[in-house]
């Protein structure tokens, strides 16, 4: 009878520690099989010449070399994406915030307005693009028709390289309902007494927004900031369906570059390398934003131990 009571106790302790992991194991398995696995697999692919059909050869970092030094489309598409992001991210957050502030007012029918503003976010991307194609159309578009009523001859929104990117920014801002909703929830969690105290102290409305609302909302702003950056880099559907990257590659996004390399040129290895570069860029930007956040984000629960309350 060699059972040592100590080792039995140890075994039951180990089991106890394992139990929570057993409970989340379905998710872990799914994550390994469908997320982490393909991710690592794509990393491996990026070091291969990997056509869809045909022989796969290990070529080291050649994919990365070609991309960075020999393919101007890489830099062009990256630049388009960055320009898009420079418009999209601030507008998405600022307009989302303004809408949220408006919808947070206690007015009759605010529930209906909330629904209306969120509606575009539930419409499928294709329907959305179709609507915007009608709006922007050079020949029969409603936008140019309305401009015509005002005596202005509208440009060819989607056909003129100097307007096309802007047109896509506007179309993609249609989906800011999600941002608005997150910020609205944040607004509603700010105690109304803070505003009342400020009113009694004679703090004007703009200062209440700037010094109370925005700091109190900063965790949500940080979240929408990062998700907007990611959304900007992943922008594909609208441009692909509305302009197809044109005219003159003025709306040729980085995601579209990856898409073309993979599914038009069937260069899976090259596309995988593209994806990893995009991933690293997003990662770096997100890390940078997160690092900077300690300077401008206020967390309700934040409290350093050494400065703990003493009474």
């Amino acid at each position: 009878m060699g059972t040592n009571p100590d080792s039995a106790a140890q075994r039951s302790r180990t089991l106890e520690k394992l139990t929570p992991y057993l409970f989340i194991s379905p998710w872990i398995l799914g994550f390994l099989a469908f997320t982490l696995g393909p991710l690592l697999f794509s990393l491996v692919m990026s070091f291969y010449d990997w056509p869809v059909v045909g022989e796969r050869t290990f070529i080291g970092i050649e994919n990365y070399e070609i991309m960075l030094t020999q393919d101007p489309l890489f830099w062009d598409s990256l630049w388009v994406t960055i320009k898009f992001g420079l418009f999209f991210v601030p507008f998405n957050i600022i307009l989302g915030l303004l809408l949220a502030v408006l919808l947070n007012q206690r007015v009759i029918g605010s529930g209906i307005f909330r629904t209306i503003f969120y509606l575009p976010s539930v419409i499928s991307g294709v329907a959305l693009v179709t609507i915007w194609a009608w709006i922007y159309s050079h020949e029969y578009g409603i936008l140019n028709f309305l401009l015509g009523l005002a005596g202005i001859e509208g440009p060819n929104w989607l056909g003129d390289p100097s307007w096309s990117l802007l047109a896509i920014v506007v179309a993609s801002l249609w989906g800011l309902g999600g941002t608005m909703l997150i910020l609205l929830t944040g607004l509603q969690s700010i105690p109304k007494e803070l505003y009342e105290a400020a009113k009694i102290s004679g703090v004007p409305a703009w200062a209440r927004l700037l010094f109370i609302t925005i700091p109190m909302l900063s965790p949500m702003l940080l979240f929408t900031f990062i998700t907007s950056i990611i959304a900007a880099f992943q922008q594909l559907t609208i441009a692909l369906l509305l302009t197809g990257g044109g005219p003159l590659e003025s709306t040729y996004f980085f995601a579209m570059y990856i898409y073309d390399n993979a599914f038009k040129h069937f260069e899976m290895g090259f596309a995988a390398a593209n994806s990893w570069v995009m991933f690293l860029i997003i990662l770096a930007l997100s890390l940078f934003v997160m690092k900077s956040s300690s300077a401008w984000v206020y967390y309700e629960g934040e409290m350093k131990n050494k400065e703990n309350a003493d009474g």
């Binding site: 007494e193 803070l194 105290a197 010094f211 309700e300």
Partner: peptide, 14 residues
């Protein structure tokens, strides 16, 4: 020309 103290203090937490 008044000042008010609120039940939940209403201090600006940030």
């Amino acid at each position: 020309d008044i000042a008010m103290v609120f039940q939940n203090y209403a201090l600006y937490p940030h």
